[in-house]
């Protein structure tokens, strides 16, 4: 790419971050009152809303059916999108989200019912899947649905012999390899792994490790936010220790 260097000699990326720095994350639980649970997350310039609803359709006998929908607002990308959902990319994302959360929700506690996870991307600047997973995790916690653990997702890439974490849109579209990982941070288990482009196998473990470490950092931030929210509400409720 002429002009813009993804990683400068001094170790700075296009937006001024260092190789191991995540973008600024801000989040909020309980944005909507009508949904069972909702959350909003901002990862840099990517803004995602997630809402959870429990519905009572008799589908599977012994466990719950997890249903997801991923949609992007038409004004979320630089170029206006024609359709918010229904195109192949969205359907692929929907499927990935569903697989991820099927592994994390304790499904046998909710027989004969369905949990709907709706994700809406308001502004897209790279890392859509990661922000969606993080937002949906927060929304599930807000709804009080039992989870095995948080699900945190992070992306990583490999530029100029060093792995970089949490890539934004410019870095994504530059053609460098991209690895997206979703993990259960406490048990360090990987629930989702995807890689694009070409990467030499010698570098694979380095990049995956970087992404997993990124997930741990994301987990710290999300956990702090959840604890703050719970302690505030519990104080107002008047629950004693």
């Amino acid at each position: 790419m002429a002009g813009l260097e993804l990683l400068s000699d001094q170790g700075f990326r296009i937006d001024g971050r260092r190789v191991h720095e995540l973008r600024k994350i801000q989040c909020r639980l309980g944005v909507f009152s009508q949904a069972d649970g909702s959350a909003y997350i901002e990862q840099g310039n990517t803004k995602v809303l997630a809402a959870i609803r429990g519905s009572k359709q008799k589908t599977l006998h012994d466990k719950v059916l997890v249903n997801c929908q991923y949609s992007m607002a038409t004004f979320s990308t630089g170029e206006r999108k024609r359709r918010p959902r229904g195109d192949r990319k969205s359907q692929e994302m929907t499927m990935h989200l569903r697989q991820t959360f099927d592994a994390a929700i304790l499904t046998n506690l909710y027989p004969r019912s369905q949990i709907d996870i709706f994700v809406e991307v308001l502004q897209s600047d790279g890392g859509n899947y990661c922000a969606s997973v993080n937002a949906a995790t927060l929304a599930l916690i807000d709804a009080g649905i039992p989870l095995k653990d948080y699900v945190c997702a992070c992306s990583a890439s490999f530029v100029n012999d060093s792995p970089i974490v949490d890539i934004n849109y410019l870095e994504e579209s530059s053609g460098k390899p991209e690895i997206i990982v979703a993990t259960l941070p406490k048990s360090e288990q990987i629930v989702f792994l995807e890689m694009n482009s070409r990467l030499h196998e010698d570098n694979l473990s380095k990049v995956v490790d970087t992404a997993v470490k990124g997930c741990k950092d994301v987990y710290q931030i999300l956990d702090t936010a959840v604890r703050d929210h719970v302690s505030q509400v519990a104080t107002v409720h008047g629950w004693e220790n």
Binding site: S38, L49, A51, Q69, S71, T74, D116, F118, E120
Partner: peptide
């Protein structure tokens, strides 16, 4: 106009 599924299932 896009009616998001967040509003009603």
């Amino acid at each position: 106009v896009d009616c998001s599924a967040n509003a009603t299932p």
